[in-house]
Every structure is written in C-alpha cells, then in structure tokens.
C-alpha cells in the first residue's frame, strides 16, 4: 500500500487501489496488497487474478488508495498515548480472582 500523501499512485496510467480479502466466511476482510486498475469493476477482477489464484478468498473489497485516511505518523506517540498506563483495561490486571473457577 502506498504511503498516504506520497506521490506513488498519482499521475499514473491507471489509479492505485488497495485490496482487502475475506479468506473465509466468519472472518474480516484483511489488507492483501494493492494494484492498478482503470475502475472499480476492473480492480475487483484484477484483484481476483492477482490475490486469489489459489482460493485465498471468498470476498474482495477494493478501495481507491487516495481515499484512505491515515493517523498522523509524526504525532504517533501523542495520538496513542491515552491507551498507555491503563493496565486496568486488561483482564490480566485483576489478580484477586486467580484460582477462582470460571472467572
């Protein structure tokens, strides 16, 4: 996948698409890679030929790469700070219930 905001994917013969594949029912679509295609219909067909030649998928999503918004990498530290130091959000934080069955 192209670095958001980079030149890659622009001014090309065909635009760049990101491909997401559901490998089987019950699972989420997961990013598989990217490809070039003139439009969405062709992007789905190309994705089938490129990423599911061995039955890797039962469903495909394609998204124009330029439509993807990414969190600001430079502000990475600050942006994800609120999750830090909050061990109490994890079950492992609560040790008093160890040994107690089904808890």
């Amino acid at each position: 996948m192209a670095a958001p905001g980079s030149e890659a994917g622009k001014h090309e013969t065909w635009p760049l698409w990101e491909v997401f594949i559901r490998s089987s029912r019950g699972l989420s679509h997961v990013h598989a890679g990217s490809l070039h295609a003139p439009d969405a219909v062709m992007a789905v067909r190309n994705a089938r030929d490129l990423y599911t030649r061995r039955g890797e998928g039962v469903s495909i999503w394609v998204v124009p790469s330029e439509q993807i918004t990414t969190s600001d990498v430079d502000a990475r530290g600050g942006f994800f700070e609120s999750a830090e130091g909050k061990e109490f959000r994890h079950a492992t934080y609560y040790t008093a219930s160890e040994e107690v069955p089904h808890l």
């Binding site: 996948m1 980079s6 890659a8 994917g9 090309e12 990217s34 030649r53």
Partner: peptide, 22 residues
C-alpha cells in the same frame, strides 16, 4: 502467471517508496 503476479506484488512494494510504477 504466478511470475507476473510476483512482478506486480513487487512493483506495489517499490511504489510505497514514492516511485510510480509507470
């Protein structure tokens, strides 16, 4: 056909560094 696919995976990877496939 696999080899064509390999080429395309790799062009995509190189493209993330800011050089277009074209």
């Amino acid at each position: 056909q696999d080899e064509a696919g390999h080429g395309l995976y790799l062009y995509s990877a190189a493209q993330t560094l800011g050089t277009t496939r074209d």
